[in-house]
Design a protein around this nucleic acid. Sequence first.
DNA 1: ACAAAACCTTTCATCAGCTGTAAGTGTTTT
DNA 2: AAAACACTTACAGCTGATGAAAGGTTTTGT
Lengths: 245, 245
Amino acid sequence: MKRIAVVEDEPLMREELALMLRKAGYEAMEIREFDHAAEQLEEISPDLVVLDLNLPGVSGFRICREIKGRSSFPVLVLTSRDQMKDELHALELGADEYLTKPCRRERLLARVSNVLKRYEGRANLLEGPGFLLDRQTYTLYIDNRSTVLPKNQGKLLETFLSRSDKTVTKDELCTALWGTTEFIDENALQVNLTRLKKTMTRLGMAHKITPVRGVGYRLEKEAESEPGSGEIPGQENSFGNEEDL
Amino acid sequence: MKRIAVVEDEPLMREELALMLRKAGYEAMEIREFDHAAEQLEEISPDLVVLDLNLPGVSGFRICREIKGRSSFPVLVLTSRDQMKDELHALELGADEYLTKPCRRERLLARVSNVLKRYEGRANLLEGPGFLLDRQTYTLYIDNRSTVLPKNQGKLLETFLSRSDKTVTKDELCTALWGTTEFIDENALQVNLTRLKKTMTRLGMAHKITPVRGVGYRLEKEAESEPGSGEIPGQENSFGNEEDL
DNA sequence: ACAAAACCTTTCATCAGCTGTAAGTGTTTT
DNA sequence: AAAACACTTACAGCTGATGAAAGGTTTTGT
């Protein structure tokens, strides 16, 4: 049974939502504590989050961003804020659906089922700069092609992604590969890294695994050349106000 | 650059849409012939379809269903029909987004970008009863887990899925596996089928690859037992009128 | 009921591709 | 220039997928 978390401060509304979802055959969990909502949600790891934007103390936008920043499940924003600005901002932050209250039962349930359907199989996909990686099989999705990485290369890439943009020590990489940091063969790591880099180049990824001397490595988000080439269409909906309201 | 097909009969509207999309950095293609729209679209295989519901002669619903029936790309329905009934019906049929005209530029572009983002990597996913299969890597997604099938098992399953629910001859299966129908080793096919069945059982799929004596095999959508167990929550939005309007 | 045809299963040798070792070449820092 | 670190290539061992072979089970027709 699919599990849905409801993040909503108004008790009546929350109860009604939860009841409606339960009647439709979902397991509904109510979140009442909003200060560390994102962490709580990560603990619970539901299949979907229904999120209100007007919460006491915290901004719903912030929660949405935090959810989407970490490894992610779908977010359906349900709010009384009907400003276009809010809708666009929420979508920018990665919300999967935006509905305004009041919302009819049927519409909400239809959207919920719709989003869940689209997320089938996505549960374990890690997001990288321009590609996706399946945590379990190490299947790599880039552009419209996919490849299965050898286990070791997959583990390495996974490690880089989960420490996004930070430096990863050799010890960490060795632990990821062999489960132990003792008797590490620096060379073996080296070889595996080389192989990963080679496949990344072959697949045309803007890779950049750069060494950090004496420490380890890091995966750069972008090659530091050609800042002029505008990529990713439809991203011009940039907002001056990137901060929460 | 992402390619978007616009299916809309009203010339002014169509032009405006196409222009808007092009300005946003997409490649827009205008569909003017609606009788075989689904086939045309399959030929083109765009990254997204913007679909009007009120078309002369054909029902937009039908087109939507036809698109989603075959191997699929995302569909954004943009229509002046603001009846809840229509919206639910479209979503039922697998539409990924439903917007009503008039619709502000920003909203449309935001939704377009949103849908496209969610479809990253999905391009080559074949849909089966309760699971997804990646055509290129033979990665199999079921529940929230994924496995990479051995090449042969993948090819077999792929063949079954692309002839959904119809009988597949042994010759077809052999061709899929070895590219030739001559000098077929019936036994080798047999062994590979057994292996596929075994993995499917291991993964808990409601498999049912049944032999059709003297011809070949077929993949049943459902095990023919227990018709009472209601599955798939949120699907109770069933409509009496399954036919097009 | 019987035999033939069709279908299924298990076992085994072969082969491809992933992996770590080893040995040697670059590159940066002191 | 020497030392420390980083990279590359070649090769042999291992794992897991594959097809051949041989034998078992189910279905069908008489």
